[in-house]
């Protein structure tokens, strides 16, 4: 089943097509099946974040259509979109975006709270997910009192708590050291294999990308290559590096 399907998305920043405008996306076709773990890679400025923002309804495409879980989000009103986001989409950001004033548990719970779920259900859900990601024991701590890796795990937990159809992650390891980064990527793999979550992750880190099952490379706003893992991470990692070398990615950053 297709969870995400897009047709010819373009995005032009800065109004009309003139000298001052930027064509950040130039006709992107993309489709993601349920249970897939897809990575999006490309040099910086290639339009990765723009793509993610548009797919998740945070930004509006200039042209093109996006279908998630069988519904077209480009025709939704703002309110419909908000509700849709709440129930069907999960987000993980590079900056974690946790509220400093809430404990980790409350942060993770927030989507359920907004959806007015009953307490027993929430408690149960929280316990399940936070235990899975090994942060249940620090559930009453505040974001500033835990490590970046733990914050990101809370953010990942939050993205999953409402059982979304798809989770979008924008450089989730961008602010983490290699150890935490490794842990978080294992987490994504875990949620993909154990919970069968569908994940679309943007990254420029080949190591993080090697956890994915499929990688889409974009350059200058266009999809230019696509590779699929054969199951061996080391082998996949090497192939990613080769692809980056071809499209002129940021090899030296790895």
């Amino acid at each position: 089943m297709k969870v995400l399907n897009t047709k010819n998305i373009t995005k032009v920043y800065g109004g009309k097509e003139d000298a001052g405008s930027t064509r950040a996306l130039d006709g992107v076709d993309l489709s993601v099946e349920a249970g897939e773990f897809v990575g999006v890679m490309g040099p910086s400025g290639s339009g990765k974040s723009t793509l993610l923002n548009i797919l998740s309804g945070i930004d509006i495409p200039t042209t093109g259509n996006i279908e998630i879980d069988g519904r077209s989000i480009t025709t939704m009103s703002k309110d419909e979109l908000a509700l849709f986001r709440r129930q069907k989409l999960g987000f993980v950001f590079q900056e974690f975006n946790l509220l400093d004033s809430l404990t980790l548990k409350e942060n993770v719970m927030l989507p359920l709270i907004l959806d007015k779920k009953d307490s027993a259900y929430m408690e149960e859900k929280i316990k399940e997910i936070m235990s899975l990601f090994e942060i249940y024991h620090i559930k009453d701590k505040y974001p500033h009192g835990v490590s970046g890796g733990q914050q990101q795990r809370a953010a990942v937990s939050r993205s999953l708590v409402s059982d979304p159809a798809i989770v979008f992650a924008d450089e989730p390891t961008g602010n983490l050291d290699s150890k935490s980064s490794n842990a978080v990527m294992r987490l994504f793999t875990k949620m993909n294999t154990e919970r069968n979550s569908t994940i679309l992750m943007v990254t420029h880190d080949a190591f993080a990308a090697s956890f994915c099952k499929r990688i889409i490379f974009i350059k200058d706003g266009k999809v230019c290559m696509e590779i699929v893992s054969k199951g061996d991470r080391k082998e996949f990692f090497d192939r990613i590096l080769d692809c980056l070398a071809v499209i002129g990615g940021e090899k030296n950053e790895i």
């Binding site: 703002k78 908000a82 509700l83 986001r85 987000f91 946790l98 907004l114």
Partner: peptide
């Protein structure tokens, strides 16, 4: 603003 932004990614409308 940051707080509101988080609420909105989690599905609040600007009306909320």
């Amino acid at each position: 603003y940051k707080e509101f932004g988080i609420y909105m990614t989690l599905g609040m409308t600007s009306k909320d």
